[in-house]
Design a binder for these strands. Structure first.
Length: 419
DNA sequence: GTACATGATTCGCA
DNA sequence: TGCGAATCATGTAC
């Protein structure tokens, strides 16, 4: 406590000594007739200011009022303000000129790109689509995951804006409060408008730091969400049995050309409750793995062939009775797949001498290992032969017209024994 | 825990 | 751009 008067007096001394213009100021404002008397006045005022903290509240209030009414007060405050301007605040002012924060700009750009800040873009659907595209997905098939991503991103966006508003509101309130306080205090201590303005800037900078932390946290949240979204996409889930059945049916029914069109893929995706991309992946994997190990898949092929043949037989029977084309897939959903009207798949395994009788075409067919016969009903029950060649490539099945001679009967077989 | 199955991803190619 | 091939990563059966 003892230090304070000493410091005050010290600063008083420095202030007066360091500001030779004070006496002049006093003279200017008072006419300079009785300089000594005025100096005494100033000394009294300063003394009162210095000792104001040692007084009781009531005494201080009374002294404050007396000081405020003192004729020398405005001049004294002007001088003190000038001294402040030329010392501490000038140093602080030099530090205020900071370059725009690069990190803040990065954060702003990222938030804008992710659709968190800036105008509402469907809750960041563009970013979600970009994320989906990056993960190899696309189209309406990922809508469930997209909507989940969008919902969470929208949540982040909402929290971000709520917090931002809170900060801005708090910043404004605090700024107003400080300004009012400083204006109030400027009645009893020398505070220039410039200093108030500077203080406001300091407050804004402090709140900007908080805002940056908020932006950083939001960016982190978006990054976590995004990585989880991508991870979830990568996470493998086995398709259900029915989906695999549908895919296998199509694959073995189109062994001659197991490249489903976009429409077929969409149809399969719909039936299997998977995405078009997944259908593409499945066929890609299937073709590779089938070619790598035809023998292993032969049993599976036979199973689907038999099933398809039975279905086709049934359908054919009813179909011929009804005199209408049929679509023999075991699921019985006519026309669901991109099959030629009346495609009948038949796989022949000669290893154990088994042969499947295509009831519809009425022919006993025995062929080479790995060869696959694709019977096409249609005009004259034409027969297309499809097989995977020795090089592992797929040989396109001839079109019915190209393999069907008008003279060929149901039992005619185009057989490629290259395998 | 291990081997195998299988969906997803990546990369090079035509 | 779609495909084949290789590979990764995870699910599943034992």
């Amino acid at each position: 406590m003892d230090d304070q008067p000493r410091l005050m007096h010290s600063s008083h001394g420095v202030g007066m000594a360091g500001h030779p213009g004070l006496a002049q100021h006093m003279q200017d404002s008072t006419g300079g007739a009785d300089g000594e008397g005025r100096k005494q006045d100033i000394g009294d005022i300063l003394q009162q200011i210095m000792t104001i903290t040692d007084q009781s509240l009531d005494e201080a209030q009374a002294r404050k009022h007396a000081l405020n009414c003192h004729r020398m007060k405005p001049a004294l405050f002007n001088v003190l303000c000038e001294i402040k301007e030329k010392t501490v605040l000038s140093i602080r002012g030099a530090q205020e000129e900071e370059p725009p924060d690069a990190q803040l700009m990065r954060l702003d750009n990222m938030l804008l790109a992710e659709g968190v800040s800036g105008p509402e873009k469907g809750g960041g659907s563009a970013a979600a689509a970009a994320a989906a595209a990056a993960a190899g997905g696309g189209g309406p098939d990922n809508s469930a995951e997209h909507s989940d991503y969008r919902a969470k991103l929208s949540q982040i966006r909402q929290i971000y804006h709520t917090e931002l508003e809170k900060y801005e509101q708090a910043c404004n309130e605090f700024t107003t409060h400080v300004m009012n306080l400083l204006r109030e205090q400027s009645r009893t201590r020398p505070i220039s408008p410039k200093e108030i303005e500077r203080m406001v800037n300091i407050i804004h900078r402090k709140f900007s730091t908080i805002q940056m932390q908020l932006k950083q946290s939001t960016c982190e949240a978006v990054m976590i969400l995004r990585s989880r979204f991508l991870d979830a996409r990568r996470k493998r889930r086995n398709f259900n049995k029915q989906a695999t059945e549908f895919l296998n049916e199509y694959f073995y029914s189109h062994l001659s050309n197991p490249y489903p069109s976009e429409e077929a893929k969409e149809e399969l995706a719909k039936k299997c409750s998977i995405t078009v991309s997944q259908v593409s992946n499945w066929f890609g994997n299937k073709r590779i793995r089938y070619k790598k190990n035809i023998g292993k898949f032969q049993e599976e092929a036979n199973m689907y062939a038999a099933r398809t043949a039975v279905t086709a037989t049934n359908v054919s029977t009813h179909g011929s009775q009804a005199n209408s084309p049929s679509t023999p897939n075991s699921a019985g959903s006519a026309g669901s797949f991109n099959m030629n009207s009346g495609d009948l798949f038949m796989s022949v395994q000669s290893l154990n001498g088994d042969s499947y009788q295509g009831a519809q075409v009425g022919a006993n067919v025995q062929s080479q290992v790995g060869s696959t016969l694709n019977f096409r009903e249609g005009s004259g029950c034409s027969l297309a032969l499809a097989l995977s060649d020795a090089n592992g490539g797929w040989q396109d099945a001839p079109t019915p017209s190209s393999v069907t001679s008008p003279t060929e009967g149901p039992g005619s077989v185009h057989s490629d024994t290259s395998n």
